[in-house]
Nucleic acid binder design. Structure first.
Length: 565
DNA sequence: CGGGTGGGCGCG
DNA sequence: AAAGCGCGCCCACCCG
């Protein structure tokens, strides 16, 4: 059952069953949503008849294993779900029309004209950040129209995975809002200690921290004159003045430059980044509150705990990977990860997928030999005898095949890929060929690459044509793999979220492309590990059914995120 | 002075 | 072009 939902500013709201039904007003929307889900869970809700029919296990079983809860149809979970969470509601399932719109508009091969669809010229107003004063029933009608339109286009697209993709993307919208609210458990005291060890005490004004200034002075001494090590221009000029013909100041180029400033500059940059992007100012801006368990942490006067609350952007990258809007959550340097710590009596369970992308390449290409190899825990070691002899070579062979690498010994190793795993090679190679010609490719579930821009077509016919075609080919080549990895991770996240909630095991606090972190009471840690492994297996079966590909997620129980990996 | 761009580098 | 893909963030720098 799908139910359109609109909330007002005072906590009131309106709902309407889809495809069409009576509009209901709720003075307290969060309470109404919670009550309706509880009814269905207890087998007394509007879904109970369907559930009994679909589950021959009998009514006693149905009470414990109810049918699916309502799927709430929202205009935009990122905008509409946080206030519901704040009011104490949790949605089990949803359809996020904004996220679905992006995916569907690309299926059709063109950018949406500002999310207005032909059958509903007013749909655009659904997605505005600040909608006009809410007319609940009128918005419900617009939701209904957009939902119907999307349903028609989903059917017309005729892509087998589209239903799963839209459900997973929408679940991502719920997870992202929930994780931002929960936050990553963070110890400001530990963070401060890490910074002091690295940089010295927090400086008072616009000064560099003491140890960072010392590093800047080392760079200056090495060159023998004043300069700002933050300025690429000045650093480049300094190398030239020293008689060294460097083209850039990239660390990999400087690596082979023989000058005493090189090492000092490298260390300076590394530390400057921690200070600038993940230092005290960052913590002031992004670490807040004491988290949901303030009652217990308050008992510990030495604790300086809070929660790191980044804003996630679901599907922020073209491939479907998430992005963030501030907080740098997707780039947390290892240097500060020790500050991410479980609260007393709790643990972090961190899990990451090993070689996710090549495993998915095996699955989507149907390459039998490569699929067989995914039985191994370390795919690169398993493939080494067939790809260059050493693990490192097998890794380059696979990565270069997926990214379009040609330099160094990559070309030769990619040739080995072609010989030994022709189906896998052909899958990425044909995606590249299509991209080079301006064609569109899709992920396994049906996410479509954005169409090339007008600008790209022009460049293609100019002198730079080969370069732009090659770049586009690399993008589409990688898109099918990275994008499928993103949707596998999304399905995993949706399944894990539900398992953790239904069994009351812990809270999902972090997600990063191919890894998840759960915060849970220590006594649940083993159960969480099992839940994670089961969710990974279920995600793989959701995407690939009986294809015997193996994509393990390796959970590790830790106190600090620094111990993971 | 405020916005946009590019270098450099963190993460996967 | 560091060996290739995807991001976000800080800084300096340039432009209006």
């Amino acid at each position: 059952m799908e139910i359109a939902l609109v909330h007002g500013r005072g906590g009131e709201g309106w709902t309407m069953p889809l495809p069409g039904g009576a509009v209901a007003y709720h003075a307290d929307l969060a309470a109404a949503v919670t009550a309706l889900e509880a009814e269905v869970r207890n087998g007394h809700g509007p879904e109970s008849a369907d559930t009994a029919a679909a589950e021959p296990s009998g009514s006693a079983g149905a009470a414990h294993e109810p049918g699916p809860l309502p799927r709430w149809v929202l205009a935009d979970a990122a905008r509409d779900y946080p206030p519901l969470l704040e009011a104490g509601a949790r949605l089990d399932r949803c359809r996020d029309l904004r996220l679905a719109e992006r995916i569907l508009s690309r299926v059709e091969g063109h950018e949406p004209p500002a999310v207005v669809t032909e059958s509903d010229p007013d749909a655009g107003t659904l997605f505005e950040r600040e909608p006009e004063p809410v007319d609940g029933p009128a918005l419900l009608i617009r939701l209904q129209a957009t939902w119907l339109d999307q349903r028609r286009r989903t059917a017309a697209a005729d892509l087998a995975g589209m239903g799963t993709l839209l459900a997973a993307e929408s679940a991502g919208g719920l997870v992202a809002a929930e994780m931002s609210r929960t936050g990553v458990p963070f110890d400001r005291g530990v963070h401060d200690r890490l910074l002091r060890d690295l940089l010295g005490p927090r400086p008072t004004k616009g000064m560099r921290p003491r140890k960072l200034q010392a590093l800047a002075d080392k760079v200056i001494d090495a060159f023998g004159h004043q300069l700002n090590p933050d300025s690429t221009k000045q650093v480049l000029a300094a190398f030239h003045a020293a008689g060294l013909d460097v083209k850039t100041t990239h660390s990999w180029e400087l690596h082979s430059v023989d000058h005493p400033a090189v090492e000092a500059l490298k260390v300076y940059r590394e530390h400057a980044r921690v200070w600038g992007a993940f230092g005290w100012n960052w913590a002031d801006a992004w670490v807040s509150g004491t988290g949901p368990r303030s009652d217990e942490t308050a008992a510990d006067p030495t604790a300086d705990r809070g929660r790191f609350r980044p804003v996630y952007i679901v599907g922020g990258a073209d491939t479907g990977r998430w992005g963030t809007d501030g907080g740098g959550a997707l780039q947390l340097p290892h240097a500060v990860r020790e500050a991410i710590r479980a609260e007393p009596g709790w643990k972090l369970v961190a899990a990451d997928a090993a070689q996710l992308e090549p495993r998915l390449l095996a699955a989507i290409s149907g390459d039998q030999a490569m699929i067989a190899a995914t039985a191994a825990d370390d795919l690169y070691t398993e493939l080494a005898p067939r790809l260059g002899g050493e693990r490192s070579k097998a890794k380059i062979a696979l990565i270069s095949a997926m990214y379009g690498g040609t330099a160094g010994d990559a070309a030769q190793l990619v040739q080995l890929m072609k010989d030994r795993f022709p189906a896998a090679f052909d899958r990425v190679e044909s995606a590249a060929r299509i991209g080079e010609k301006g064609g569109l490719v899709r992920t396994w579930l049906g996410r479509t690459v954005p169409a090339p821009s007008e600008r790209w077509w022009q460049t293609l016919n100019s002198e730079d044509g080969t370069r732009s075609a090659t770049g586009r080919g690399r993008f589409t080549r990688n898109f099918i793999v990275q994008g499928t990895a993103a949707e596998w991770a999304l399905v995993l996240l949706a399944l894990l979220r539900r398992a953790l909630h239904e069994r009351g095991l812990g809270e999902l606090v972090f997600f990063l492309h191919d890894e998840v972190v759960v915060h849970c009471p220590a006594e649940h840690a083993q159960a969480v590990c099992t839940a994670i492994e089961q969710a990974a297996e279920a995600a793989t079966r959701t995407l690939f059914g009986d294809v015997p590909v193996r994509i393990p997620l390796r959970p590790k129980v830790v106190d600090s995120y620094a111990e993971a990996k």
